[in-house]
Simulated assay, not measured.
Amino acid sequence: MRLRLRLFEFEDLPWFPTVIRAGMMDYLRFMISALGTYRPIAPLLAEGLRRTGQTALLELGAGAGGGTETVWRALQAEGLADVTVTLTDLYPQPAAWADIAQRTQGRIGHEPAPVNALAVPAHLTGFRVIFSAFHHFPPAAAQALLHDAVRAGTGIGVFEGAGKHWAELLLAWTVLPVAQLLLTPFFRPFRLSRLVFTYLIPLIPLCTIWDGSVSLLRMYSTQELLALAQQADPTQQFTWQAGKKRHWWGPEVTYLIGWPNAPLNEELRMRNEVLPEPPLH
């Protein structure tokens, strides 16, 4: 699918009711985690962490944290047993994040204050990742997000849980809404509001269908992702690669990943190196 349209998504609107947004995020978290959508990109992230000498991920636009736990466990299987994750979002989801923190013994934590992905506070460090959210940013903002990672000298990985195919759009209109109606009672943590706005007043499924369809139409192609990276990093401080990773059962993940050309720890060592004093005459 080459078509790319800049339509609106309900969850991007500041006035959109928090309870509906939370219900949509809970559904996305459940589906992404249950399907293991982002497991195929674990080797890419493991390489990025090793190249930058980091043991922490900083997730931007985390929503309800869908897929984060799956990726964290996959990184452990890649030999990165000490990796931690900090979840951040412009609209924090503390209840959902607390649930993840409890299951992971605090290894997946969160920043309670809203975080602007275009200007990440200096105290939030780690290899930056963004799952299922990069399409929310128009080109200028997407470029600024990548540039902020370059400026900070940290790596960044952008991942979208689709390959941008027409068949995926068809699924968003047919199979996935049925799955949402069948599975909603099993989402955790339990929310009575989620049942009300799914079955009595079906705003959550209707808005999910719209936002899911628009997400596919707004997604950047791999060529567009590389072009954004080149604009954000005109002096070529980072090594960038973009492509698609296929899950063993068929679906694809579109990705862009970049890291500093010099390892972060080596760069810091060179900056802090003390030159020998000249001999006295």
Rank of each mutant, 00 (worst) to 15 (best):
Q102H: 11
Q105F: 10
V85H: 11
H247G: 03
G161D: 05
R39S: 15
A42I: 00
T198G: 06
L45Y: 03
T37A: 15
Q241E: 12
P276H: 06
K245N: 05
P121M: 08
I130E: 14
V214H: 08
L146A: 14
R6Y: 10
G161P: 08
R218W: 14
S132D: 09
Q76M: 03
L268P: 01
A77I: 01
I100H: 06
L169A: 12
P260L: 04
P40H: 05
A77P: 02
L87S: 08
S215D: 10
E168Q: 14
F16L: 02
H123M: 09
L87W: 09
R51C: 04
D148C: 06
L80D: 00
A141E: 15
L118N: 06
E273I: 10
S33I: 01
L171Q: 14
A81Y: 03
G48L: 08
I100E: 06
E9H: 08
V19M: 11
V71R: 02
L146W: 10
Y199A: 02
G106M: 01
V178M: 12
Q236K: 11
A149I: 00
R29Y: 13
P94V: 00
A142W: 09
F134V: 12
G258L: 04
V150A: 10
E160I: 07
L90C: 08
P94M: 00
M1T: 13
E78C: 08
I257W: 00
A62F: 04
R194T: 11
R246S: 10
A242D: 05
M1N: 12
M24D: 03
M219N: 03
A117G: 02
I32A: 13
I130R: 10
Q241I: 02
L182S: 09
I201R: 07
S221M: 05
T84C: 13
P121Q: 08
G109E: 00
S193L: 12
I100D: 09
G212H: 07
D12T: 13
R51A: 06
I108A: 09
I41C: 01
F30N: 14
T18E: 14
F10M: 11
S132K: 04
L170Y: 05
K245Q: 15
Y199F: 04
I20Q: 04
Q231G: 10
L124P: 05
H147N: 13
V253D: 01
G161I: 03
F8C: 05
L181M: 09
E267I: 05
P251D: 11
E9T: 03
Y199I: 02
R73K: 15
L225I: 07
P139S: 12
L171C: 08
R188I: 11
L57A: 00
F190I: 10
H110P: 01
L268G: 02
R2G: 15
L280Q: 14
G258E: 09
L145E: 02
E168C: 11
K164A: 07
G155F: 00
A46V: 00
F238W: 08
R151F: 04
I100C: 07
P114A: 08
P278S: 09
Q237S: 09
V178R: 12
H165K: 15
L146F: 11
A227Y: 05
F197Y: 15
M270A: 15
G53P: 05
V175K: 11
